[in-house]
Design a protein around this nucleic acid. Structure first.
Lengths: 336, 336
DNA sequence: CTGTTAGCGCTTTCAC
DNA sequence: GTGAAAGCGCTAACAG
């Protein structure tokens, strides 16, 4: 099958011992200049690379990161994954990726599997079900094993580990303030992800902004059933006089735009729309959606950075930290 | 750090030799019933799992598949990845994922890296640059090493390996036939991915259909520069009288819809639109896009299946095959 | 039935 | 300067 050169073969061919070859390859000062050169030459000739399995077995490190994501069809996580992957490979790490599909059970299984596959550490974003169940045994288990974890976006206070999050609350406050500044007074908040921690923060942020102004009112629409989002949003828009919508997720915002078209409302003339997360839909809606960008790629990259730093610089009692990535409001055509 | 039970420890605690424990765990008939039970009990108690690194080092198999994708922000590949991941984990395989970002150089590097990380086989879809350069040394190298490869969607005849593709040509023929049947006569084909093999097939399919009918004419718009797609499409729609558009990629179709809005053309009354690939945008456009579904998830899953089958049933001279996944036309509101 | 031994490929300590 | 030997955790051929 695959024939890779081993130290043994190099040693035989050079009439040296395995250990001498090994040391030469590491430019050990113990070894004579001459030998080092000879060894390197042959190694280069055969394009020798140490077998990572053997190295891992020895060193108990695999240079592999387990990445556990709730979804991959969600643009936000796809972008985050891309950021993680870039940063990882830049630092010589590989990533083993698993997708829980928002299931607690799968999250548990995958983490166990990856842990047993000897990943050096984890980057993960909690599945929806895990957040609802509020069950974190599997992660505490990891901590007990001393496996580094970095959580991003969907996090929990229950587990003591590094976290990279977005200032969701502040971001939505900013977004609503923007709407108010532009003259909107009756603002709707629409969400299809009420159960997620991030949605709660975003909702709170909206209230923070609205509460400052007496003349501003906030109406909420919580869509629970994905299959009827469109009808619900349509009815909502028909039955409420509003001049702005903040979508707490991209779907909510996108559907708001579409239903407005259907009902003949003009955007942004009749209704201003701002959406959370700066994904594909925002750029492909008409008019283009003003969004709160989460910088998903940076977020993923930063998570990877933090984890890798921890892996490469092991310290006995590491103190955990939470980092907040700043969002930004990307102004496009759907708001005035 | 991580304390995992080893055979050695079990052996010590049971007063047995390592090999006896090892055999017991495999229910070797050589070993007495009694011992087998004792061993299993202790192993269960400690939740023993063999160290995969050691097993891999011995067996020269890692139960890991290298997945190389051109993009991940493209919904099609995200879906394919999901299919691959599902199928892999169902069969006890892990996946190491890399994203080439359409770069030949990255494709080469990643494949080399994964190969050296001892993945058992590869699932890959060619980067755009690789297709343009028509350069496949890196893959032929793999074949020489006898590493199984399954290519999907973006494939090449230059490399002899299993391939899973979509019947692009037939699919677009069907799509255009549909448009013609519904009364369209002046049909535009718009693409932003002219260089890709799949685009060529899709274009050919459209011609196949159009050529059958004398009164049907086909106009092509090849957008080369992503930054000006919108203007180009807008101008094109303004300057040509057409009654249908086939978008050879989702972006093309989505932008056609948006520019039609802008120009005041009604869909599907004035222009029928059909788009390739059934991604996020299709469901979130208004009106919803009629699409050619590629069943990306199935495609990915099938690629994984084929590869895993090959890995689990090694045969000396394996004959390579190409499998075609059927597409389907998903009728939605943008065509009549 | 159970144990000894060698070896997968590498690193590292300790002799020479 | 160089090499022998042990060991990472496991499997498997071979002894007893």
């Amino acid at each position: 099958m695959r024939k890779k050169v081993t130290l043994k073969q190099l040693a035989r061919e050079l009439n040296l011992s395995i250990s001498t070859v090994s040391k030469s390859l590491k430019n050990d000062p113990e070894i004579s200049e001459k030998t080092i050169i000879r060894v390197h030459e042959l190694a280069d000739f055969y394009n020798y690379k140490p077998n990572p399995l053997a190295v891992s077995l020895k060193s108990n490190k695999t240079k592999t990161i387990g990445v556990v994501l709730p979804e991959i069809l969600n643009h936000f996580f796809a972008k985050a994954l891309y950021g993680i992957e870039l940063e990882a490979s830049k630092n010589g790490y590989k990533i083993l990726t698993c997708i829980t599909n928002e299931s607690y059970q799968k999250e548990v299984e995958y983490i166990e599997m990856l842990n047993y596959s000897s990943v050096d550490g984890f980057i993960l974003s909690l599945s929806q079900e895990t957040q609802v169940l509020n069950e974190f045994k599997h992660l505490k288990e990891l901590k007990k094993d001393n496996v580094p974890i970095v959580m991003f976006d969907r996090v929990t206070d229950e587990v003591d580990c590094d976290k990279i999050i977005v200032d969701d609350q502040y971001a939505s406050k900013t977004a609503v303030e923007h709407l108010i500044r532009e003259g909107c007074r009756k603002i709707a908040v629409i969400t299809t992800i009420s159960e997620l921690s991030v949605a709660k923060l975003r909702l709170q942020g909206s209230k923070d902004a609205a509460n400052i102004f007496d003349e501003v009112s906030l109406i909420e629409l919580h869509v629970k059933d994905v299959t009827t989002v469109e009808e619900e949003v349509e009815d909502f828009l028909k039955n409420n006089t509003i001049d702005a919508v903040l979508g707490l997720d991209e779907t909510a915002a996108s559907i708001t735009i579409n239903m407005s078209h259907k009902l003949g409302y003009k955007i942004p003339e009749d209704i201003s729309v701002i959406g959370f997360t700066d994904g594909l839909l925002s750029k492909h809606s008409y008019p283009k959606l003003t969004t709160v960008s989460q910088h998903a790629e940076d977020l993923g990259a930063r998570a990877a950075q933090v984890l890798i730093h921890q892996l490469d610089n092991y310290t006995e009692n590491y103190k955990t930290k939470t980092e907040v990535i700043k969002t930004s409001l990307i102004l496009r055509d759907s708001s005035c």
